[in-house]
Design a protein around this nucleic acid. Structure first.
Length: 419
RNA sequence: GGGGGAAUGUCCCGAGUGGCAAAGGGGGCGGACUGUAAAUCCGCUGGCUACGCCUUCGUAGGUUCGAGUCCUACUUCCCCCA
């Protein structure tokens, strides 16, 4: 599919931005987008207290729908999270308590307030929790009304299930019901809100198709599915997935500055693609940035970082992060915007081992690791490498700005501030 | 229901004759080179009140001076038979 295959503003943009992977009925959906204001949804499970980079393609899809004048529904899986989605998971998910799920939901939604406009207007986003209906389901009526439309034979061939079976890993009956509930959600949203489209990542495609089938059977409705590709970096890694954890969108879990840094460190080969996917930059401008070579490519990365940060944290925070980075990396100066760590003044006056300070400031997870960092020459105080494992700092190390700059590697910096 | 096999460093894969903080990868982190990139090379990759101490090999017991390694029970998964 190319953009030229579509007439509707949304689908053209969607394709041009590189977000298109698959669609259940491209021509019909295109016609629908031309004809009316479409209500569409994407579901998110409440498994963590913040959305992360992995959810971003989906969130951007909702954003672009809104920009094209349609109505996005943010479906929070307060109900489905109680089952646990088997897709892409090697092992049974740890069950969360209803309280945790609810707290996660609140926090996740709060974290994307810049990204979507919620409200009562015609193309304002609405947030719905599928616990609203899933929690109240009655087992037998549900099985008779919905369950009979599902073929176990077919469910067993679905990717999410097959992987579990092939990898010799457990799949509980509880999780097995996940796809049924997700399909039911779609139909329920159609009935309650006239929602015609579910978008998703390619890994959820099977569940979306199940929902479309179910809609035809129980509601005689033509529902649509639209999927995005799985986003990987050009060296093949899953986006934002690392041992150190997901790249969170909530500011209290990853500061705007660190978020900016994440994008700034994008691999060369990904810059153009990410600009299209994760920013609102005009395409011709992206095309220009994409052509920059060598050292100039860093300009494109800065634009990417600032624009992507702006969408999640707002323009002001993004500009501030960019400025902090400029001062730190390009001038080698102390930038006030760097993350800070506060320490009682008298504690610092006594003198404190650099290794321990690094650990307290969160730059190292154990004193052993801090020790190893020093031995490898990776820990610096005020930009000077620490050579002695037993080195300590005190008030005399404070710079003119009244702080101590502690760095791990070339990129991670923290300002230690006495209070 | 019966028989056989598997579970290892809490990121993953994976070797492991009774002396093991446990081979080797991948990943990650640090260093060099660069452009805060990639590729490449080097180092590190249980914890601590640190020349010593503590905790790790599915769970719980047992044998032994000593157990990831042997025995028993349990849990989960795979395969074969029913």
């Amino acid at each position: 599919m190319t953009a030229a295959d579509f007439k509707s503003e949304f689908l053209r943009t969607f394709v041009e931005r590189g977000a298109y992977y698959d669609c259940s009925a491209p021509e019909d959906l295109d016609a629908l987008f031309l004809k009316e204001r479409v209500t569409a949804y994407i579901g998110f499970d409440c498994t963590a207290s913040s959305m992360h980079i992995g959810n971003l393609v989906q969130l951007m899809t909702l954003r672009r729908m809104q920009q094209a004048g349609h109505r996005p529904i943010l479906l929070m899986g307060g109900g489905t999270t109680k089952l646990g989605d088997p897709s892409g998971k090697d092992e049974v998910r740890k069950l969360l308590t209803p309280e945790q799920i609810d707290a996660n939901k609140q926090s996740m939604v709060a974290g994307i307030s810049h990204l979507l406009k919620f409200g009562e207007g015609e193309s304002d986003a609405i947030m719905i929790d599928n616990a609203e209906w899933l929690d109240k389901l009655e087992y037998i009526p549900f099985l008779r009304g919905i369950g009979r439309h599902f073929s176990v034979n077919r469910m067993l061939t679905m990717e999410s299930v097959k992987i579990r079976l092939e990898r010799e890993q457990a799949l509980s009956f509880l999780e097995f019901n996940y796809m049924v509930c997700q399909a039911y959600d779609f139909v329920e949203l159609y009935k309650r809100y006239g929602c015609r489209l579910q978008s998703c990542g390619s890994d959820q495609w099977g569940n979306v198709v199940s929902g479309i089938d179910l809609g035809r059977r129980v509601a005689s409705a033509q529902l649509f599915g639209l999927s995005t590709p799985l986003i990987t970096t050009s060296s093949g890694a899953k986006m934002g997935k690392s041992v150190s954890g997901a790249v969170w969108l909530n500011a209290d879990m990853r500061s705007p500055y660190d978020y900016w840094q994440f994008w700034r460190n994008t691999e060369d080969g990904d810059v153009g693609r990410f600009l299209r996917l994760f920013t609102d930059m005009p395409l011709d401008e992206i095309a220009r940035l994409e052509k920059l070579e060598g050292n100039e490519r860093n300009e494109a990365k800065k634009v990417l970082a600032t624009e992507a940060t702006s969408i999640v944290h707002g323009r002001a925070a993004a500009n501030e992060a960019a400025e902090t980075a400029r001062r730190t990396f390009e001038e080698g100066a102390f930038a006030e915007g760097l993350p800070t760590f506060e320490i009682p003044r008298d504690k610092l006056a006594e003198g404190i081992l650099v290794a321990n300070l690094a650990q307290m400031a969160g730059l190292s997870s154990s004193s052993g690791e801090a020790r190893r960092l020093i031995q490898g020459g990776g820990l610096r105080v005020n930009d000077a490498a620490v050579s002695d494992v037993k080195a300590s700092v005190s008030l005399s190390n404070l710079t003119g700005e009244g702080v101590i700059k502690l760095s791990v590697g070339r990129k991670k910096h923290i300002l230690v501030k006495p209070i």
